[in-house]
Structures are given as structure tokens and as C-alpha cells.
């Protein structure tokens, strides 16, 4: 029953830039890899380690956090905090023995529909290449 591996990717998108960018990708009929499931949050700063770590431990093959470009945050500074928290998390996930690029932070603006598609497709390709998150089958998580 060797089925082609299709990853499960969780994408946290900020409402103002990245979600709008994703919408633009849709309304421009850009093809985007379906393995990413979008979860809308108001600001990338809402996404903290609790959300990302639990996604990973519960078997997400990849987690994408996308927010406004630095300086563009609808709430002025949220994405800077998001970035710091993310930098910390990158360190932490290392000890889970996961490839550090299973989690990704990207800046996607509302006009960057194409970029959204590129980032998601590339990320999905990367994750597919990496194969399933070993934790998906880890009974301890």
C-alpha cells in the first residue's frame, strides 16, 4: 500500500497581509499545492511556540508561519516579536531531531499572490522530499 506521500502542512497566515496574499493567489487562479491548510490569525505574533510545537508533535509535516513584511505589520510591531519567537523555536526544534526547515517563517504581503504560491509550492516540495514527519508515527507525542 505504498501511497505517494502527501504532506500535511499547517499554515498560519496573518489576516492583513498573508491571508490577503493567499486570497489573491486564489483569485488569480494560481495553482497552489493543496497540502497546506490555512489557518487565519489576526497577526503573526499570535502564533507562538504552543501552536507550532503542538502542530509538529501532532504530526504536521511542516508548519508555515506567514506575516507582513517587517515594518508593514498592521499592528506596527507584531511581526518583529513573531520573528524573535520563531528564532527561539528554531533552536528548540533542533533537539527534536526534526529538520529545522520543517518550520518556516515567510513574509508575504497582500499583493504577493504569486509569491504566496511560490513559497507554498516550494515548501510543499521541500517537505515532500523530506518525507513524513517522523513524529507522526511516534506514539509518544
Amino acid at each position: 500500500m505504498e501511497k505517494k506521500f502527501k504532506p500535511n502542512i499547517v499554515g498560519f497566515l496573518c489576516n492583513w497581509c498573508s491571508y490577503a496574499g493567499a486570497d489573491l493567489a486564489g483569485s488569480s487562479k494560481t495553482q497552489v499545492d493543496p497540502s497546506l491548510s490555512v489557518i487565519r490569525v489576526m497577526c503573526s505574533s499570535r502564533v507562538n511556540s504552543n501552536l507550532i510545537l503542538s502542530s509538529l508533535l501532532w504530526g504536521a509535516d511542516g508548519v508555515l508561519v506567514a506575516g507582513c513584511h517587517p515594518g508593514d505589520c498592521h499592528y506596527e510591531q507584531g511581526n518583529y516579536y513573531a520573528r524573535r519567537r520563531f528564532a527561539l523555536l528554531k533552536k528548540i526544534t533542533k533537539i527534536l531531531n526534526l529538520e529545522p526547515d520543517r518550520i518556516q517563517l515567510s513574509w508575504i504581503s497582500a499583493s504577493e499572490g504569486k509569491r504566496y504560491a511560490e513559497i507554498v509550492n516550494q515548501f510543499a516540495r521541500d517537505i515532500t522530499k523530506k518525507g513524513p514527519n517522523p513524529l507522526t508515527r511516534n506514539s509518544q507525542t
Binding site: 497581509c17 507582513c68 513584511h69 515594518g71 508593514d72 498592521h74 504581503s109 497582500a110 504577493e112
Partner: peptide, 12 residues
């Protein structure tokens, strides 16, 4: 001067 994305700025 802050190189903000105009669409993000204006769309709302």
C-alpha cells in the same frame, strides 16, 4: 520611506 506594501496598506 518604510518600504511598506501599498496594497496591504490600502486594501483595508
Amino acid at each position: 520611506p518604510n518600504m511598506e506594501c501599498a496594497t496591504c496598506m490600502i486594501a483595508p
